[in-house]
């Protein structure tokens, strides 16, 4: 079963070198223990472009989809047998990247 672990940020600052080192160590562990699927860090929301092509004519809008105080700054996709294992990994992930995370199962 796969879970998306979204990293939520409420500051504008990027990860510090210490945080980056901790994230790398955590990623190594995910790979070693077979939980790793994919992970990535994102650039700031101000670099986002919103596209709406539902009508067949793509409309591009500058900036994030939602103006919010909290936004997605990165994510992991992990493999875990159940939510208890996923929550434990996410708790460790939150500590390592020093941010709140949200766990959501894939359908």
């Amino acid at each position: 079963m796969q879970y998306l672990v979204s990293v939520i940020d409420d500051t504008a600052r990027l990860a510090t070198p210490d945080e980056m080192a901790a994230i790398d160590a955590f990623n190594d562990r995910l790979q070693a223990e077979g939980h790793w699927v994919f992970a990535g860090g994102l650039a700031s929301p101000s670099s986002a472009t919103v596209i709406d092509n539902r009508g067949g004519r793509a409309v591009f809008t500058d900036g994030p989809f939602l103006e919010s105080k909290e936004y997605l700054i990165g994510f992991w996709v992990i493999e875990a047998p159940d939510l208890d294992v996923a929550l434990k990994l996410a708790a460790d992930g939150s500590m390592h990247c020093n941010r709140k995370v949200e766990v959501r199962p894939f359908r």
Partner: peptide, 14 residues
């Protein structure tokens, strides 16, 4: 069901 919360007695540590 969707998040697969397991149906078991937690481990001793938890």
């Amino acid at each position: 069901k969707a998040a697969r919360i397991p149906y078991r007695v937690p481990s001793a540590a938890d």
